Amino acid sequence: MVETSLDALGPVDFLIVEFPEGQSTFSGEMAEELVRLTDSGTIRLIDAVILAKDHQGGIEAMELSDVGDLGALQTLEAELAELLAEEDIVNLAAAMDPGSIAGVLVYENLWAAPFASAARRAGGQLIANGRIPVQAIIASIDADEAPEPRDTPETPGG
Rank of each mutant, 00 (worst) to 15 (best):
P98M: 04
I43E: 05
E86T: 01
Q135R: 10
G41A: 02
P11T: 03
Y107N: 12
D13E: 08
E21P: 06
Y107E: 10
V17I: 09
I101P: 01
A112Y: 08
T42D: 15
A72D: 07
G22K: 01
A31C: 04
S65M: 13
L45Q: 01
L80I: 05
S100D: 08
A118G: 13
M96T: 00
G28L: 01
P133C: 10
D47C: 00
I141S: 08
L45M: 06
A128N: 07
M62K: 10
I16P: 00
T25E: 12
D54C: 02
F115T: 13
G130M: 05
A78W: 06
M96S: 00
D97K: 11
A94N: 04
A52M: 10
E60F: 06
L105H: 05
T42G: 15
A94V: 03
E108A: 02
P11I: 09
L9W: 05
E86H: 03
E82I: 06
S24F: 08
Y107H: 10
I127R: 10
G57P: 02
G10M: 06
G99A: 07
A102M: 01
P11H: 07
N91S: 14
A136R: 09
G123F: 04
G68V: 05
T38N: 13
W111E: 14
G22W: 03
I141R: 04
R131E: 11
L105M: 06
S27T: 06
R131M: 12
L6D: 15
Q56L: 15
A119K: 11
D7I: 15
F19H: 10
I43Q: 05
V90H: 00
I89W: 00
